[in-house]
Design a protein around this nucleic acid. Sequence first.
DNA 1: AATCCGATTGACAACGATACCAATTGAATG
DNA 2: CATTCAATTGGTATCGTTGTCAATCGGATT
Lengths: 340, 340
Amino acid sequence: MNDEHSFKGEKPNRTTLRHVANLAGVSEISVSRVMRNAPNISDKLRRKVMEAANTLSYTPNRVAGALKNQSSNLVAVVLPSMSNDVFAAVLDGIESELNEHGLHSVLGLSQYDHDRELQVIRELLSWSPMGIIMTGLHHSAPIPEMIAQLDIPVVQIMDIEGTPIGSAVGISHSKAAIAAADHLYGKGYRKIGYIGAWNERPERSRARRLAFEARLAKLGVPLVASVIVDERSSAVAGARTTADLLAEHPQIDCIFYANDDLAMGGLFYAMSANIDVPGDLGLMGFNGIEIGKATPLPLSSIQTPRFEMGQEAAKLLLAARTDGHRVVDLSFQVFEGKTA
Amino acid sequence: MNDEHSFKGEKPNRTTLRHVANLAGVSEISVSRVMRNAPNISDKLRRKVMEAANTLSYTPNRVAGALKNQSSNLVAVVLPSMSNDVFAAVLDGIESELNEHGLHSVLGLSQYDHDRELQVIRELLSWSPMGIIMTGLHHSAPIPEMIAQLDIPVVQIMDIEGTPIGSAVGISHSKAAIAAADHLYGKGYRKIGYIGAWNERPERSRARRLAFEARLAKLGVPLVASVIVDERSSAVAGARTTADLLAEHPQIDCIFYANDDLAMGGLFYAMSANIDVPGDLGLMGFNGIEIGKATPLPLSSIQTPRFEMGQEAAKLLLAARTDGHRVVDLSFQVFEGKTA
DNA sequence: AATCCGATTGACAACGATACCAATTGAATG
DNA sequence: CATTCAATTGGTATCGTTGTCAATCGGATT
């Protein structure tokens, strides 16, 4: 315990408007106005105040400001998890945009649990954020009402197939799955398998799988088999699962994965096992992560705009006051690697 | 614009303690006490209040609470960037611990810029967080004083070689570099090169390189060459730079990389170029990322405890009131892959 | 020089929750 | 049944900032 300097109760008492006002010889409200760059301030006043503020190294207390204003420069950001690179990229995008406007994220992780999400959102809303960004379109019942009480803009990210509470930005996961199916069919694959993980979290991956299956059926080449392993997605899991799936269904000539981590594992397995990719086995991932583009055979994948999604979400939030609620479809792209 | 329901100025006025108190027929302070689980509350009172609170779906306004209390359940978290997986993992660890105690992160990204960091920290501190977690041990001058004004605990992460403001948790980067040098030397490599990126951000990577160089010199096998490319770390950059470095210095038999992304690129390049790894070329990364363990030749690396670092940082923060400031050395491990 | 008007500045009362201290209750005691 | 003391409950002021409205200033006008 280094802090011997303060006896209990003898707080150093943060410097406030009042201190600055006294030193500058002006009223508190004037200091407040200068700090906020309010209009109609004389240069003389501004200079006096700024000088006093600097010598005291005064920082406005936003908590008090937010209380008075009923709103803050905080944005509630609710994501399922930080373990998934996808959400790190999204958060990066969100921050890049928010920071330009002096806003900050307060983070809440739902861990893919709806009850937990409710709890987290309740806590974040108690900070009177100026807006909220949340993941997906499905949430427990009380949430829309809670948000409505604060009358703040909402942006839901990742998915746009459904009914958003406010704005939404994302991609059509079913269209992406269809594009993947068409791509693989176009490459001549006819015995296609699917690999997912971790009980299909995020739930959007299930939508993709279903759309993928449906499309293949329609094309007359129904899915041969699909495996959803219990553990979390990882290259290691992808490698093992690929081996298992091929052992059980040797006729499979192509695998579509729930994400690139799994697909990379599949690719590594194929390399170790000397399987001819893309000749004897096609591999296709989802997301288009950076590292997949550096492998000896670049990984074919669906390129999703993760950073941009976050960025656009923040933009929608900021524009909501003037533009109202909107739905933005950021399109995906089929990344033509060399694995399918 | 969907929200036609509210004329300008006719705010739905958030439900407050007062509303609950009125409905329950008790005083505001009693409601406050029930909501906070204060001691000495009769069951009858508690029941009345809870019922009223539920029917009004009341949520306490933490902004007001924080103002009165001079502290909040927010933790300021200052990281350089979200683009780097390392910090995503650290943040994941931080959140995992904070969430168990009902705390939330307010995020600030410095983008590796000290002025920006100062600015961001100033803004975060204006929210009266109950603590602050920041990255590295070097910060612009006013920061320690600003934090001292609030009298909140500080934890600095990543590095422990230097003088922390409060607590610190991380690894010894110079020891890690020495371990890497010793490992490579022990494997018989004698013509060793180094590859870094992006002007050696984070700055800790420079410390590693210098310690690595010094150790090799001491072992009598001075570094053959080192390249720091301008662009950000990525596997693509690692592949290209590896090719360049080997072209210029064909005698190099081993490369130590600033991080695993670069090293993976090097490995992929070697695979494409049919270079015998680890026979003709040893490769060693830094961090021990998941995907490096799934490649046909698992990537040798220094395994760093990123998630644990975040978790421990949060623990130190929570314990600071009782335990004071501490420095925790989370040790790294040499991950024995098959590339060096 | 008196008047007027916009540009500045200030006084005061909130925002919602909580610490502090006072008031009330009720059960236990003699 | 009066008294005492702990357990509950309530009243009031306050955290630091800002919206509202009133007061003041200073130059331009006649």
